[in-house]
Design a protein around this nucleic acid. Structure first.
Length: 469
RNA sequence: GGCGCCGUACCCAAGAGGUAAGGGAGAGGUCUGCAAAACCUUUAUGCACCGGUUCGAAUCCGGUCGGCGCCUCCA
């Protein structure tokens, strides 16, 4: 079945045809590890994870590469000059190297909790300086660079299709609208490949190069590392929408100028998570971290569920309401699965009956239609509520879908059901009170159990208990 | 100022020419000692607004209003 994806390059939904028949090379822009990632960042990584899982579900073998930007670049708005890594280091009283290690760990801790698959290669910029220098050499040999004020720049005027993906030719760019243009550049769009004349004080991350001791420009690492691990021509490159006009535009320019050929076939970009009517951004303090959500009583899966509810190319408004409704929804789903699971095991996938298979087909159509997860989720719900399906069928199909949703449904469906002996005794005591029609006592015991986070449900087949979640 | 995207019920959100998915929340009911849970019913003749095209428009075209993003590091 055909996977269709929206390609930012061309701005249309296209049939996905990989370079190799069954294998896909996929590069995703990773974190700059100078601070904790926020849930807006995480939304993009979840989108990329869904892309990867959709491709794998379809049968492709995916090779996933992601960069870790551990070289410092500019800090936030109105920035005139502190290196992000240095700033982070100063704040924590650690070295830039320690900062990078600490926030890299924090990043993967978050992505693990969100069931985001780890990339096959997670490559650090600082470990690929030689590859970057080689790339600049190639560009230099082809005449795409010039040196000004001690820094090596890419000459965008020499690259004819510069800005094609971002439609920059249609724009009247207001260069210098918000930040002063570096007057040493020939053109405002030109960007640095290598700095020897840092505008930052106390730069500690520096390397020798043919152009002098210094450090690489930001865009360079993605070009150098993606080509190293995926080849000079590969299938998919992803990132947030903010990367379209500058970062990815510059990556395309330097990569294709160096190799003289097409670099990436499909460009996919995830939209922002908005909060308080604006984008989530570290620089303005308008952001939340995953741990912040956990501290407020949410599970990481609640956030993943929230993200599944909106298409990746739509802005998603984060609010207390939307977050708690995602939590309720996910808990309801798991409640259903738990009840089914208590009644019996999932049916084997290969013996699934036709109605259940039809739901799986419908699910597959949805995810392959440019990752329509809201639609896929509605298929799951319709399947769960279909009275013509047996419990085992439902469990089996739900777990199959969860290979893409990644809400950890299979584990969540088996509720840990050990209860402290004293609490179990209270339940027994209440049962006795009910048998004796001493409802006042029974109710007070129920309240006492509620105080311990144990909720009772009297059903026709006896009393069930569950933990307040 | 330029470019791009968006406006669907109380909230989140699919749908992109053929008569409004799904979830959350709310209301009524069945069951129950009471609850809870579950189940059933229910909540947009309507898709920001105004025109136009069409047998037919949330869907296409034009305009108006409102929101967001990018043009600067950024998911």
């Amino acid at each position: 079945m055909q996977v269709r994806l929206f390609n930012t390059f061309g701005r249309e939904v296209q049939d996905f045809v990989p370079i190799e028949p069954d294998a896909v090379g996929m590069y995703t822009c990773g974190p700059t590890v100078y601070d904790y990632a926020h849930i807006g960042n995480m939304r993009t990584y979840i989108f990329e994870d869904i892309l990867r899982r959709t491709l794998e579900y379809t049968g492709y073998k995916v090779r996933h590469v992601m960069n870790i930007t551990d070289v410092g670049h500019l800090t936030g708005d109105e920035d005139d000059g502190e290196d992000k890594m240095l700033e982070g280091a100063r704040r924590k009283g650690m070295s830039v190297w320690e900062i990078a290690a600490m926030y890299t760990n924090a990043f993967f801790n978050d992505t693990d909790r969100l069931h985001i698959l780890r990339p096959h290669v997670a490559c650090r910029a600082t470990e690929h300086i030689e590859d970057m220098i080689d790339l600049i050499r190639r560009l230099e040999e082809k005449g795409y660079v010039y040196i000004a004020n001690g820094n090596v720049f890419f000459d965008t005027g020499k690259f004819e299709s510069y800005g094609k993906m971002a439609l920059l030719d249609k724009q009247e760019l207001r260069a210098g609208a918000r930040i002063e243009v570096d007057t040493t550049k020939k053109h405002p769009a030109d960007f640095a490949l290598w700095f020897t004349n840092s505008k930052f004080e106390h730069q500690t991350m520096m390397w020798d190069s043919p152009w002098g001791r210094g450090y690489p420009g930001w865009h360079l690492e993605c070009s150098a590392m993606s080509m190293k691990y995926l080849g000079e021509h590969f299938d998919i490159h992803c990132g947030g929408v903010d990367h379209i006009p500058v970062h990815h535009t510059n990556e395309i320019a330097q990569s294709e100028a160096a190799t003289g050929k097409k670099w990436v076939n499909y460009w996919l970009h995830g939209e922002f998570l908005l909060m308080n009517q604006g984008k989530m951004a570290k620089s303005t303090g308008n952001f939340l971290t995953l741990q912040g959500l956990v501290d407020s009583g949410y599970d990481p899966e609640d956030f993943r569920y929230l993200c599944l509810g909106a298409h990746y190319r739509s802005q998603l408004n984060f609010s207390e309401d939307s977050m708690s409704s995602a939590r309720s929804s996910r808990r309801n789903l798991i409640e259903r699965l738990v009840r089914l699971r208590e009644a019996g095991p999932p049916a084997p996938l290969e013996k699934l009956n036709t109605p259940a298979r039809e739901y799986l087909d419908e699910f597959a159509v949805a995810i392959r239609d440019d990752l329509n997860m809201p639609k896929a989720l509605s298929v799951l719900w319709n399947m769960m509520k279909d009275e013509n399906l047996g419990g085992g069928e439902k469990l089996c199909a739900a777990f199959a879908m969860d290979r893409v949703f990644a809400l950890d449904l299979e584990r969540a469906a088996v509720r840990e059901n050990t209860l402290d002996r004293s609490l179990a005794a209270l339940i027994e005591k209440r049962e006795e009170a009910r048998r004796n029609r001493d409802y006042a006592l029974a109710d007070s015991l129920r309240n006492e159990l509620a105080g311990h986070g144990v909720i009772l449900e009297d059903t026709a087949s006896g009393t069930r208990w569950r933990r307040e979640s």
